[in-house]
Design a protein around this nucleic acid. Structure first.
Length: 920
RNA sequence: GGACGAUUAGCUCAGCUGGUUCAGAGCGUCUGCCUUACAAGCAGAAUGUCAGCGGUUCGAAUCCGUUAUCGUCCACCA
């Protein structure tokens, strides 16, 4: 068998996708302590982007790691119906393709179309996730709108309703006049809009004068129910309590005093109060028990309360009102004014504050509990700083508006009885039903909440009941995700075993919207928190610090990267980007593909590809030698410690340190450091150092005892590397394992390595590093004189004492092999050969004869430069040491370290000066 | 306006409890190599007022204050 000269991800990935699936490796083993994770469900709005790739790679790293440590691992996948976002996309498509609105085709037809969209995108998302190699248990895939989740939603709603934690009320909401639904605060973005500031006269009802008032929204005048002034404002004090007449509609409204709403210094110091169309005015209305007059229809046009302006909309209405004020002689002035205007994220239209009937969840107690979970430490948020965000948001305890006037979502399980329905009717109809609960609303109408999905219109004899049209906010169902995915409210085996989940991995922008909701719902429904650890990972931005998005055209498709660099490469780079930072920049560039298409990619991913290839080639190099040694087997070739050379002990020390480090980094969610440790171990320690040192031994044609032992050591090291790297790079590790150790257990299931700390030896690592310093000096000479690596050099090391001589002799193989030497000698105070280049090394000096090549002038220049540098360094240390405060104040070890440093610099100076003398 | 974060090599980022990991890594640049695993590679080299200012300290990239710039979130602008 021959291994290919380059790692070919495509073939390998296909093979292992199939193998894992065939062997059902992603399902829980049923053995060991449970470890469970629920995926943050991607929206079915569109395809996955790089942020998802990061999120899911990190989860998979954790899941694969835990699986290998013997935990009974379950990762539940799924997608989110993403109410408004998805409906908006489909409506937009409908309009583009057929010039129809949802009202043209009706609720059922629209919902049907959205399901089609969902099926398409869910399939695409699933394909992307699988392609990424994430080890979710696909047999348990959920969708927030599927029957299992729907049942959980109805049950949760029912319980909250019964407890009085859900209520219906008139509230000012953010109204999207295009989509004709309430939207959440976080679905709004603000844009600076150039507008005007109109000042006009508000006439007193008794005709005795007027009060000047300014507004940016004159069209709301007809909804005014008061005019507010500051109680301490001398200009207006006299008017407080008097009545004003609203222009156009001739209603009388009072002048009220309100210190909260009014800033005396601003504008005219008076504010018209329109409680039904402005949040601050709304609050003022509540404080003063003012009437709230809605002057708007669902589509944003003015209604019958707007008098002569009924039917007008937006700018036209505004212009007409201004014109009207002018005609009445009430307009005083118009100024330009810039303001921040809320726009709907989904429809891009201006948001209208709008008074309407909505459903709410009472937050006070729920929020308290959710805060306690974090303040008590029951839930740990990593990095810690994000806990503040969570707590600050919950602290406000704002009731949660859960109704949306959409068609795509969980329909609110409430039925409205007709006016003539009585309690007796309901008692009779629902006798003995504990899945039905009803109560009488303020308006005298009975509201029936049912866990049963399809309550019939005639369920109450002689009356008609009608289901609520509204659907629930998306976050209502995603808030149930950790337990709904496990089958709650049924007490399933899954729920009993795998709930609560072990860790939640998500990004910071949904800490409040999602994480907080899951916590409070879980506490309410399950009596416990949904997870004990929340890990917040950074957000990926492009090279200019902009968030990636389709509209900006700077998004990177994970599948493009997988195709170009390999999935393991993508995953490795995702992990190495994942520092403690809140944002990570990824410079993006456009690249034309062979088929003519243009993709967004990034050079950053080359690191991952190159790393895969490096590992691949190291194994390819060793393959025939392992075969010769009989190590190509699931059975372990035993090592003989009696034959260990320094480099053997060194690589085993490094391996075990790396096991220790990698394990720690995984436990602490330090993914970038994990990737760094593994990269350096494989590339620097194994490939650049160990393999190069052992090259002569490895390449020997006969299987010497030394070679056999090296193969035993290397197969041990490679097994370690394969296991350690598997969570990050699952495909290549499985492939290498199957190639090098045929018949052995798949890496996905093999045990996570345990560090043998007795093999970690700082002394050996120090000795090795000293040898390496000599090697670097030899290479430095080579570089200076452009001596080809093919040219073998002679080297002489002169050491200061016998002890150093012994140490250097121990490292002879290392120095000879890595330095590319044909001969090497070491002696105390060895003589410098003629025409030698020299280098100071720890404890001595290195001489390399270069007759015919040596350029004395260049050597002199180099030495002078080195001396100068050493002198400057020495001077700074001397200064430090002559400072009595430092010598007395600093710990002795620090002072001694400085003295050693000084001695080293002085030695370098002395040796270089001697070498200089020799050359002149 | 409030909260949080960032500012270190041309780029992307490490640098945790002040002192040998203290000024680092990868990419890029420059020099030389098709050395029998890897040119997706190997060996060298260059590159920094650690954003500015002030303070604490024997000693500051690191701690404190402050200024500037950038980012994110929250609140708000009649």
């Amino acid at each position: 068998m021959e291994m290919e000269t380059r790692y070919n991800p495509k073939i390998v990935e296909d093979r292992w996708h199939a193998q894992w699936e065939k062997n059902n490796d992603f399902a829980p083993s049923g053995k060991g302590e449970p470890f469970s994770v629920v995926i943050p469900p991607p929206n079915v709005t569109g395809a996955l982007h790089l942020g998802h790739a990061l999120n899911d790679t990190l989860q998979d790293i954790l899941v694969r790691y835990r699986r290998k440590t013997g935990r009974d691992t379950l990762w539940i996948p799924g997608t989110d119906h993403a109410g408004i976002a998805t409906q908006a996309v489909v409506e937009k498509r409908l309009f583009q393709d057929e010039h129809k609105t949802r009202h043209d085709i009706g609720r059922d037809a629209l919902v049907e179309r959205i399901w089609k969209w969902k099926d398409e995108y869910e399939a695409r998302i699933t394909k992307q996730l699988k392609s990424l190699g994430v080890s979710c248990d696909w047999s348990r895939q959920r969708f927030t709108l599927d029957p299992v989740c729907a049942k959980a939603v109805r049950h949760a709603f029912f319980n909250l309703f019964k407890k009085g934690l859900i209520y219906r009320g008139k509230r000012l909401v953010n109204w999207d006049t295009k989509l004709q639904t309430a939207v959440a605060d976080d679905e709004i973005y603000y844009e600076t809009v150039k507008g005007h500031f109109w000042t006009f006269k508000y006439p007193l009802a008794d005709g005795s004068g007027f009060i000047p008032v300014s507004t940016t929204r004159p069209e709301t005048i007809m909804g005014d129910t008061a005019l507010a002034v500051h109680p301490n404002d001398e200009r207006y004090k006299q008017f407080i309590g008097k009545m004003l007449k609203v222009p156009f509609v001739n209603r009388e409204i009072p002048v009220i005093a309100d210190a909260i709403l009014v800033d005396m210094e601003f504008g005219t110091g008076s504010v018209k109060v329109t409680p039904a169309h402005d949040p601050n005015d709304y609050a003022t209305g509540l404080r003063h028990k003012l009437p709230m007059i809605n002057i708007m229809n669902d589509d944003g046009s003015l209604n019958e309360n707007a008098g002569p302006f009924q039917g007008m909309k937006g700018q036209a209405a505004r212009d007409a009102v201004v014109k009207g004020l002018e005609d009445l002689g009430l307009l005083i002035k118009v100024e330009d004014h810039e303001m921040q205007v809320g726009h709907s994220d989904r429809s891009k239209t201006v948001i209208e504050p709008y008074l309407s009937d909505q459903w709410f969840v009472k937050m006070d107690v729920l929020a308290d509990n959710a805060m306690n979970a974090v303040t008590s430490g029951e839930i740990k948020i990593i990095p810690e700083r994000y806990a503040n965000k969570y707590l600050d948001w919950l602290k406000e305890k704002r009731d949660w508006c859960i109704s949306r006037q959409l068609w795509w979502g969980h329909r609110i399980p409430i039925w409205h009885a007709d006016e003539t329905t009585t309690e007796e009717d309901l008692n009779k109809a629902f006798a003995g039903r504990n899945d039905i609960y009803y109560y009488k609303a303020q308006n005298g109408i009975w509201l029936i909440c049912s866990e049963e999905e399809n309550l019939k219109e005639d369920a109450v004899a002689g009356h008609k009941i009608v289901q609520e049209e509204d659907v629930l906010d998306t976050w209502f169902s995603s808030g149930l995700w950790p337990h709904s995915t496990m089958g709650w409210p049924e007490q399933t085996d899954t729920l009993k075993k795998y709930y609560p989940t072990s860790v939640l991995v998500t990004s910071r922008d949904i800490i409040t919207l999602w994480v907080a909701r899951m916590v409070l719902f879980s506490q309410e429904n399950m009596g416990t928190v949904p997870f004990h650890t929340v890990y917040i990972h950074p957000k990926i931005l492009d090279g200019n610090g902009m968030t990636m998005s389709k509209s900006k055209g700077n998004g990177v498709d994970p599948m493009d990267i997988e195709k170009k660099y390999g999935t393991d490469a993508l995953r490795f780079v995702m992990a190495s980007l994942c520092t403690d930072n809140q944002d990570v920049r990824l410079p993006v560039k456009k690249e034309k593909q062979e088929d003519g298409s243009v993709i967004n990619t990034s050079e950053k991913f080359e690191i991952g590809r190159n790393f895969s290839n490096k590992l691949w080639n190291a194994c390819r190099f060793l393959f025939p030698h392992l075969e010769q040694a009989g190590a190509l087997s699931k059975d372990i070739l035993p090592m003989d410690p009696a034959l260990f050379a320094l480099e053997d002990r060194w690589i085993l020390s490094r391996l075990n340190s790396t096991i220790q480090d990698a394990t720690k980094m995984l436990e602490e969610f330090h993914f970038a450091e994990l990737a760094g440790f593994l990269y350096r171990f494989v590339w620097d320690d194994v490939c650049s150092s160990y393999l190069e040192i052992k090259k002569a031994v490895i390449n020997s044609e006969t299987l010497t005892a030394e070679k056999k032992n090296a193969m035993a050591i290397l197969s041990h090291v490679l097994r370690g590397v394969i296991d350690l790297l598997h969570p990050v790079m699952p495909f290549i590790t499985e492939e290498l394992n199957a190639t090098l150790f045929p018949g052995s257990e798949r890496v996905i299931n093999s045990a996570w390595p345990k560090a043998d700390t007795s093999l970690i030896d700082a002394k050996i690592e120090a000795a090795f590093n000293q040898a390496f310093a000599v090697v670097e000096s030899v290479r430095g000479v080579r570089g200076r004189y452009n001596v080809s690596p093919a040219t073998k050099l002679k080297a002489v090391v002169s050491v200061d004492d016998a002890a150093t001589e012994a140490n250097v002799k121990d490292c002879q193989a290392i120095i000879t092999e890595l330095g590319g030497l044909e001969s090497f000698s070491v002696a105390v105070k060895a003589a410098k050969p003629k025409f030698s280049a020299s280098s100071v090394v720890p404890g001595g000096e290195l001489y390399i004869p270069l007759e015919g090549i040596l350029d004395p002038a260049a050597e002199i220049a180099r030495l002078e430069k080195e001396i100068e540098k050493a002198k400057a360094f020495a001077a700074s240390i001397e200064k430090k040491l002559s400072n009595q405060k430092f010598v007395n104040g600093a710990p002795e070890a620090v002072v001694n370290a400085e003295r050693t440093k000084l001695a080293t610099q002085r030695e370098i100076i002395a040796k270089d000066e001697a070498a200089l003398k020799d050359l002149r």
